[in-house]
Design a protein around this nucleic acid. Structure first.
Lengths: 104, 104
DNA sequence: AATATTGTTCGTTATTTTGCGAACAACAAA
DNA sequence: TTTGTTGTTCGCAAAATAACGAACAATATT
C-alpha cells in the first residue's frame, strides 16, 4: 500500500490544506518572531479557532511554539520545513510520462 | 485575508492530503496511460471509494479523465501540475527569517 | 436482444474538521 | 492579593470527508 514517505507527504499536505493555515505559515516565514496575538490580529476569526489551526500545524510538525510568559512565541520548525520542502520537491520533480487525455 | 494564490495553494494541498490520493498521483505520473481499473487494482479499497478520490483529484484540477468506452482513461492535468509545482516551489523558496523557538 | 464489462452515482454510516463562545490556567502588574 | 493580559481547552453545532454496498448507465460482446 502507501509508503511511509507518502504518508508523511500527505500529513504535510493536510496541514497546508486550509487557507488560514497557509496564511499563518506565510506569515511566520516572513517574521523572525511572533506571538499568538500577532497571528490572531492578522485573522478575522476567533482566537479559539486560531489556536486550533496552530495546534494542527504544530502536530504536523511544521511549526513550534515556546512560552515566553505571558506570551507564546511561534516559529517555523526548521527540520520539518526542510523535510517537507524535499518531499514536495521530489514529488513534483518526477518526470511525467504522459500521453495526455482529453476532456476532464 | 487570504489571497487567491493562497486559496489555490490550499486547494492543491487539500487534494494531496490523503495517502491514497498521493499514491494515485504517483501512479499516474509514472504511466503514460491507465484506466480506472488499473488504479483500482493497485488499491485495497472499494471501487466506489477509488472513484470518489479520483473525483476529488479531478475537481482540484490535478488530473483529467476521458472516456474510451467501455473504459475511462485518466492522466495528470499538465497545466495544473505545472501550476501546483510553481506554487509549492514558491512557497518553500521563501527565505526563512527565523530566530528559532525552543520546545514544541 | 441478452449478457458481460467498466465505472459512476446514490444512500447510508462513522469520523473528522471547522468554528465559536465561555470557561479556564498561567503569569505579570498594580 | 486582586486584577489584567495572554492563550489554551472544553463543549457544542454544522459541515465536510471517508468508506462501503447496491443500484445504475453506457458500451461491447455474444
Amino acid at each position: 500500500m502507501t509508503t511511509q514517505k507518502e504518508e508523511q507527504f500527505a500529513r504535510f499536505a493536510k496541514a497546508l490544506a486550509h487557507p488560514t493555515r497557509v496564511l499563518i505559515m506565510n506569515y511566520l516565514v516572513n517574521l523572525n518572531q511572533c506571538c499568538f496575538g500577532d497571528i490572531h490580529a492578522e485573522l478575522p476569526i476567533a482566537k479559539a479557532t486560531v489556536s486550533q489551526h496552530l495546534k494542527e500545524l504544530r502536530t504536523a510538525g511544521l511549526i513550534q511554539g515556546s512560552i515566553e510568559a505571558p506570551k507564546v512565541k511561534y516559529c517555523i520548525n526548521m527540520d520539518n520545513w526542510v523535510l517537507a520542502q524535499q518531499l514536495f520537491e521530489n514529488f513534483f520533480a518526477q518526470k511525467l510520462k504522459i500521453a495526455s487525455c482529453h476532456d476532464s
